[in-house]
Each structure stands twice: as structure tokens, then as C-alpha cells.
Simulated scan of single mutants.
Amino acid sequence: MSTQKSQKEMEYENFLKEFLEDFYHKIAYHSNIDDFENFENKIIKWIRLADEIMCIELMVNHQNKDLWFSSIIGFCYQYGIGKCEIDKSKALDSYLFAVNIKDEEVTNHLNETDHNYFKKLNSTIGKYLEFRPHNIK
């Protein structure tokens, strides 16, 4: 049994990595972070432009979904994006998971530095989304 990824799987993986980095940059470098409602509306529109259903399915089915994408998946549950029904409890659980990520053994083809980088992005996004002034509690 081969552990090598197909060309299509590698393309999906690269798409998801770029999506996670872009999401992080939209949060980290937002010029008016005090305007949360407008900011979140822009993020929702941006996700929808990225072919939301395919993107969310790829994240949910990814082997590192919890470590890399739990914050974005939580955002999708919070706002009912893609195939995610609005579920504030699942959103909060996803954010808390991202915030509380512990070191895990790297079990995929990525080197440890890359793996830790994407975990850090996910955790940072989760902290922003969980601890902003009008969080989901």
C-alpha cells in the first residue's frame, strides 16, 4: 500500500494550506479590527468565493482537520457556511480545540516545521474568533 499522495490530493493539500494562510492573514492584518461585524461579513463573502462546499469538505476530510482547520470549521458552524448548519455549540467546541492544541506527533508527509506552522495558524485564528468582543457564548 503506497503512502504517496496523488497529484490531485497534493493540489487539494496546497489549496487548503493557502486557504488557511489567507484566512490567517485576513485576521492578523485587518486594518480596522474594531469593526468586527463588517470584518466577519467580508470573511464570509471571501469563503463563499472560494467554493465553500468543496473547501469545507476538503477541510473536514483532511487527516489534520483538527490541528489545522478546527478554527475555520468552527467559523463555518457559527455562520452556517457550506454544508455546516448553524451550530453555536460545535463552533465553540472547534474554537476551543484550536486554542488548546497540544503538541501532537507528526504522522504525515510534512516535516515537523510545516506541521507546527499550520497548527500555529489554526490556534491563532481560534484565539481571535473565541476571544473577540462579541463571541458566540
Rank of each mutant, 00 (worst) to 15 (best):
L129T: 00
K42A: 12
D34T: 00
L58F: 09
W68R: 06
K120L: 12
E13Y: 02
E21F: 01
D66A: 10
I56L: 15
Q78T: 02
M10D: 12
G126A: 15
V60W: 10
N61H: 14
Q63Y: 09
D114Y: 06
W46N: 12
K83P: 07
F131L: 13
N116D: 14
S71Q: 09
H25E: 10
N14E: 07
E57T: 07
E104R: 04
N116A: 11
S94P: 04
N61M: 13
F39E: 06
L49T: 06
H62Q: 09
N111Q: 06
E85Y: 04
L110I: 04
M54G: 05
L129G: 00
D114L: 13
A91P: 03
F19C: 13
S89T: 13
G126I: 11
K65I: 02
W68E: 11
I86Q: 13
K102R: 11
E37P: 05
I125C: 05
D51C: 08
K90V: 02
T113Q: 12
S89H: 10
C76L: 10
S89C: 08
H115R: 15
E130G: 04
Y77R: 00
L96S: 10
F39L: 09
E13D: 09
W46L: 07
L67F: 01
D34N: 02
A28C: 02
S94R: 05
I56K: 04
A91Q: 04
Y128S: 01
F118A: 03
F19T: 15
L58A: 10
I43A: 07
D66P: 05
E13T: 02
Y128M: 01
F36M: 07
K45S: 12
E105Q: 09
D87Y: 00
Q63K: 13
W68K: 11
K65P: 02
C55D: 05
K102P: 01
E105V: 06
E21T: 00
K119R: 15
L110Y: 13
H62V: 08
I56N: 05
I43S: 07
L96E: 15
N61V: 07
A91K: 02
A50K: 15
L92K: 14
T124L: 09
E112F: 09
S123Q: 15
L110G: 03
H30W: 04
L110Q: 11
E18T: 00
I73G: 00
I53A: 11
N111W: 05
I47W: 07
N116H: 11
I101F: 04
A28M: 03
L92Y: 12
I44F: 06
I47S: 09
Y12L: 14
D93Y: 04
Y12V: 13
I47K: 08
N14G: 01
